[in-house]
Design a protein around this nucleic acid. Structure first.
Lengths: 123, 123
DNA sequence: TGTAGTTATTTACATCTGTAATCGATTAAG
DNA sequence: CTTAATCGATTACAGATGTAAATAACTACA
């Protein structure tokens, strides 16, 4: 199990796929067109690279491809978070959390939820 | 005020500099040798690029250079955090926070501190 | 004062990324 | 059956990044 490395642009593609899996490439193109103005071949290239990186698989369905992820989103998030933490915060999670909380608007509900998690952690 | 973009390796250099500023290049090399096994010219290259990116300045002091940052660490953290958030969490900060909290070991003291921040936020 | 050592500058190069044009194959429509 | 439209595959290309060798400039000692 080697290091997965998903680039910035690739994350956008993966988020679409994780949200709506399985998806054909046209569906992926369609959904991305809301967020980006990438040309279709650009997206195809990224799908290709993601397959090569073993992050995606596809099956043929007639003349079209249907894509699915091969890795769990949560695993990727975990890995990306760890990398970010190391890079920016020298691996100190608490200051990161503090910083994020401070600089983020949160609804009352969200605050309650976070508090609940802290309570949980305490035991 | 354009986008600053500091690469992974460059963050390691910047963290050293922000921690000990101002520093000569030998000092930087010495400190990095604890964390990395980069050759000296590699580090020089990065210093150069960081100067070019206008993230660092230097003054000559005899035959050596003394480096200083030109941007605040907090500003860079803020920017990197925003980029990370967008990339991985589709800009939803609350789930990110929840995820981090869940997957992180925290001391009682840190929990208390985070709770305090939440309390603060509530008013 | 010449030479070794130190420091900075220039050049190098493979890989990754963002971005896409073009080509080839297949399918659907006339 | 021929042709236009569609879809995937191949090729392209510039800029960023990781990594460092080679070279030039300067300084300090012999």
């Amino acid at each position: 199990m080697h290091q997965i490395s998903i680039s910035d642009a690739e994350w956008q593609v993966m988020n679409i796929i994780w949200d709506g899996q399985p998806l054909t490439s046209q569906e992926i193109v369609a959904r991305l067109s809301n967020q980006t103005d990438w040309a279709t071949p650009t997206i195809k290239t990224m799908l290709h690279r993601l397959v090569k990186k073993e992050v995606l698989t596809f099956e043929e369905q007639g003349n079209r491809y249907v894509y699915r992820s091969r890795v769990k989103r949560s695993a990727c998030i975990k890995q990306a978070s760890r990398a970010f933490l190391e890079r920016v915060f020298d691996s100190e999670p608490a200051p990161l959390l503090a910083h994020f909380m401070q600089s983020t608007k949160l609804s009352a509900k969200e605050i309650a939820e976070l508090r609940r998690i802290l309570d949980d952690k305490e035991r």
